[in-house]
């Protein structure tokens, strides 16, 4: 079964499955223990190392191996974890499991431009005003019409000493928004990279006034999950690695690009649109009767057609012309015995150089314009009652 087409072959909206987009991705940690080595951590010894790769490797959960930051003794106490997802994903949730006491404050950010700029998705703190200058998140979601980064309580410490930072995209979005029909929600859930800022250790409550932590502290975590769907705008049901090893949508519906966010070159009979559950909005191939390989979209023609067709064929071949290569170019006429899509659908007029008054024939009948007294499709004979003269200007004269 093809998720992107129904049983009759008609296109329908399709989306890749929900995956952990962070799985197997490299995590960039601003601080990792073991360089230089100490009693608890040695980056050069695999048995005693705690690299950031442990955050996104598919390790067992019974006895997790944990990433660990360097010991933090004085400000700044920030540690950043960054996960490039490789391409745009539509987020559903983000979670990070801590192996030791979770931080007292953290921020979750996303990038939509592969790390060039960042916007917050949420904050986590028991002192939202102090840490982030924000009010605690209202119980019923954001007050505004669109999604926004709210400040949620800091992760609780579990009985085993760890904790879980968990964020769902619904947490920052007002109820009732529908992904298919809400561009702001589509923007809100789209991310190419995820960044978690661990900004205040839980023990900072004990810190001295100069910012020095009384007990050396390190963040420790495992299992960073970024739940989401590869973003294909409703035009693919899966993402694959391309020849360069980049994750990219397996685009259908005449679309292309890493996110299926544009129409393929010949599929520009109407503007690109994201597919919805109700409508596939497939890109349509231009109608060029097989005589052109390229076309361009013309918005004016699209509007004039009642938003049905805006494609204009380029470089019509086989002596055809017109927006759809649907008629013959000057000097050629339609051969009624051949289909319009036939390479030889247009025949040369072949107007007689003396008998015809011009080189352009009727594009439908092939009739050349004949001089007085001349007849025939190509004007190559004198009409009945006329005979050939010696003058090329008046080749046929009345028979005396």
């Amino acid at each position: 079964a093809d998720p992107c087409h129904d049983e009759g072959g008609a296109p329908r909206g399709c989306v890749p499955g929900l995956v952990n987009a962070a799985l197997g991705r490299e995590v960039l940690a601003s601080s990792t223990c073991g360089r230089p080595a100490n009693r608890a951590c040695d980056a050069s010894d695999p048995r005693r190392a705690h690299p950031a790769t442990l955050l996104t490797s598919a390790g067992g959960t019974a006895s997790p191996l944990c990433w660990r930051s360097d010991l933090l003794q004085r400000a700044p106490l920030n540690v950043t974890l960054t996960v490039p997802l490789g391409k745009a994903f539509e987020l559903v949730f983000v979670s990070l499991r801590f192996c030791s006491t979770p931080p007292a404050s953290a921020a979750l950010l996303k990038s939509q431009d592969h790390g060039r700029s960042w916007t917050p998705l949420g904050f986590f703190s028991s002192h939202c005003g102090l840490d982030y200058g924000r009010l605690p998140a209202p119980a019923d979601g954001p007050a505004g019409p669109g999604p926004e980064a709210l400040c949620f309580p800091a992760p609780q410490t579990h009985p085993d000493g760890g904790g879980l930072l968990a964020f769902s995209v619904q947490d920052g979005s007002p109820p009732g928004l529908d992904l298919d029909n809400s561009p702001v929600l589509q923007d809100w859930v789209t991310a190419t990279d995820i960044r978690i800022l661990l900004t205040r250790p839980a023990m900072l409550e004990d810190a001295r006034d100069d910012g020095e932590v009384t007990v050396p502290y390190s963040y420790s975590a495992t299992e960073l999950q970024v739940g989401g769907r590869c973003k294909c705008n409703g035009h693919a049901s899966r993402c694959l690695l391309d020849t360069q090893g980049h994750l990219t949508c397996d685009c259908r519906h005449g679309t292309e690009g890493p996110d299926c966010s544009r129409c393929k070159p010949f599929y520009c009979d109407r503007p690109w649109q994201r597919a919805t559950a109700q409508e596939a909005h497939a890109c349509l191939a231009c109608s060029c009767n097989g005589h052109a390989r390229r076309c361009r979209f013309n918005m004016e023609l699209y509007r004039l057609s009642g938003r049905r067709s805006g494609g204009v064929c380029l470089n019509c071949r086989h002596n055809t012309a017109g927006r759809h290569c649907h008629y013959c170019r000057e000097g050629f006429y339609r051969d009624p015995g051949r289909a319009l899509s036939d390479r030889r659908a247009c025949r040369a007029c072949d107007c007689h150089p003396v008998g015809a008054a011009g080189k352009t024939c009727n594009q439908t009948t092939g009739q050349c314009p004949c001089k007085d007294g001349v007849t025939g499709l190509t004007c190559n004979r004198c009409a009945p009652g006329f005979q050939q003269s010696r003058s090329p200007v008046a080749p046929c004269v009345k028979t005396p």
């Binding site: 008998g355 004979r381 050939q388 010696r390 080749p395």
Partner: peptide
């Protein structure tokens, strides 16, 4: 009645050299 095709050899191009088609 089917008339014969125009015979190019019969035309006198003396005064119309510039109109003479290339063969």
């Amino acid at each position: 009645e089917v008339m014969p095709t125009l015979d190019m050899a019969l035309f006198d191009w003396t005064d119309y050299e510039d109109l003479k088609p290339e063969v």
